[in-house]
Amino acid sequence: MFRWIVLRDLTLAWKGRVDVLSTLFFFLIAVSLFPLGIGPETNLLRLVAPGVVWVAALLASMLALGRLFANDYQDGTLEQLLLTPQPLYLVVLGKVLALWLVSGVPLALLSPVLGIQFGLSGKALLVMAVSLLLGTPVLALVGSIGAALTLGLRGGGLLISILVLPLYVPVLIFGAAAVDASMVGSGVQGSLSLLGALLALSLVFAPWATAAALRISLE
């Protein structure tokens, strides 16, 4: 049953792949704008690269959240999902997993290309991709709470950013710190394992909160 929800959302993402691609393009363009604003000096760019890439990843993941429940809410399928004979927790988890596969994973895979623009070393590029692979599922999980709470509200898109971005702070800090550490040659394990801890914590709590929020929003 879990397989069905993931497959369903992946199929839908494939049919609406323009949306998926625009998240990626947003990420690409947002990161590429920074050198234009800061100036082309390689040392400076290398210094800000972890923060810039991570902030852009944060914003891109947040934009992708709009797709998570809004369409299903409008056509009534979300109501049907609430009435399926399986824990809502799993439905949410399946949907978030599908979202992450089409938004978080490509983002992480694309990040080394952007890192090269900023003159990062091979090791830093690898750490950046790994930290994004660990961090983006947390963003999707925590973001799903905001997406569920703002369903059908006016100004939902903007509101979700106000709700969710402050909660993204720890992910941003640990993610960017991991890349930073790899650049100065100190250990990256600390920040990566903290990211892993955040992932474990949000896997346990976030779908539960999202399920509660969905029930509230659909009343």
């Binding site: 369903r8 839908l12 049919k15 609406g16 409008q74 056509d75 009534g76 399928t77 109501e79 049907q80």
Partner: peptide, 13 residues
């Protein structure tokens, strides 16, 4: 089984 105002169909499928 519940059928509401909205059909609960995905337009793309």
């Amino acid at each position: 089984s519940y059928i509401g105002h909205r059909n609960g169909l995905k337009e793309e499928l």
